[in-house]
């Protein structure tokens, strides 16, 4: 009988655990309590030798066993090799639940793995629970958040990818020490059919990455032109945040595609989202309505964005935003 919960410990290009990894540990702890204490394990795939920091962080997050696949071939993420490593470990360890972050890496590897293991996979979940029969009940938004569905799986492992930043990180447990078990995987017969030949990190400016930003200032059609986005950038700098945009603003060429928020762009969950001159179409809301606090500035009191907003300012962005900037600058001087 499969047993135990396994989380995928995702390592970022700068050799840290991704934020969602710890969120998964926290959730695994909770699920384990509902499953009479099934073990909590982390699958760690890496090409590096010096990984004590990762062990410590995983330990403090409550992980009991680290299933480690370590091989110099695994220096960079590769779908072929990582999927092979993950498959071999899961086959051998037979967990009943497998949780993976819904990041670009997680969503690259998870579906391959589920197909190879011939089991089900529930995508981009925002809630996980154990039902009265002991099954994983995974809840996820569909139709851009218009409908929520709770999904069960008939096979093992019950797999799910989890949207980053919706589940809290656990409080560190400094006493806990995870046991590390190294698992040998033979890659000799695994073809490597993709090759990373160039990597350009996102502009290392003062701006935070949009998926990690705690504050996002987003602009829409109401901003009127690219030049006016400078105002939002200034506000973002002052608040330690970053700038996002609606599709209209992106399609008009005022902002880069990579900062589009919504159904055909990014899904973001900052602490504070300030929507400036954005009407709040459902496709836009799909990407930002799980933000903690939404502040909308729009001159049309009937704009749908106000339905999603925590605080609303009916007014002209060209009047309000400069005033906020001015106030913030005053505070800074003091």
């Amino acid at each position: 009988m499969p047993s135990g919960i396994c989380i995928f410990a995702e390592v970022t290009p700068d050799k840290k655990l991704s934020g969602v990894t710890l969120e998964l540990s926290g959730k695994a702890l909770e699920l384990s309590q509902k499953l009479n204490g099934e073990t909590i394990n982390a699958l760690l795939i890496t090409g590096d030798d010096n990984i004590d920091d990762l062990f410590i962080e995983l330990s403090q997050s409550g992980i009991q066993n680290i299933w480690l696949v370590q091989d110099p071939k695994l220096k960079n993420y590769s779908t072929d090799l990582y999927a092979k490593a993950a498959y071999e470990v899961i086959k051998q360890k037979d967990p009943s639940i497998m949780l993976i972050g819904a990041t670009t890496t997680g969503r690259d590897i998870a579906p391959r793995l589920s197909s190879q293991l011939d089991t089900g996979l529930t995508a981009d979940c925002t809630e996980l629970d154990i039902n009265e029969k002991g099954q994983l009940a995974a809840t996820r938004p569909t139709f851009g958040g218009e409908l929520m569905a709770t999904i069960l799986c008939k096979k093992f492992p019950q797999m799910a990818t989890i949207r980053p930043k919706v589940m809290p990180k656990p409080t560190p447990n400094y006493e806990n020490k995870a046991k590390v078990e190294k698992i040998e995987v033979d890659f000799s017969a695994t073809p490597i059919r993709t090759e990373l030949i160039e990597f350009t990190p996102l502009a290392q400016s003062t701006q935070a990455r949009i998926d990690e930003a705690e504050v996002i200032i987003a602009g829409g059609k109401g901003l009127k032109n690219a030049q006016n986005f400078k105002m939002l950038e200034e506000l973002a700098q002052l608040l330690g945040g970053t700038v996002g945009a609606s599709r209209c603003a992106v399609d008009a060429g005022w902002c880069d595609h990579s900062v589009q928020i919504g159904q055909t762009g990014k899904t973001v969950t900052p602490k504070i989202y300030i929507a400036c001159g954005i009407s709040g179409a459902i496709q836009h809301l799909a990407g930002m309505n799980s933000s903690d606090i939404i502040i909308a500035i729009n001159k049309d009191p009937k704009a749908p964005i106000f339905k999603a907003a925590t605080y609303g300012i009916v007014g002209d962005v060209f009047e309000i935003v400069p005033k906020i900037i001015e106030e913030l600058k005053k505070q800074k001087v003091h």
């Binding site: 409908l147 069960l152 909308a296 609303g312």
Partner: peptide
Amino acid sequence: SPTYVSKAFRPEREENCQFLEGSADQMT
């Protein structure tokens, strides 16, 4: 299909936007 939907529901959207009032300076 190994997965199946056990429940579907519309998320409750709280529509309780607090509008800030007054002049632009007051709202700011």
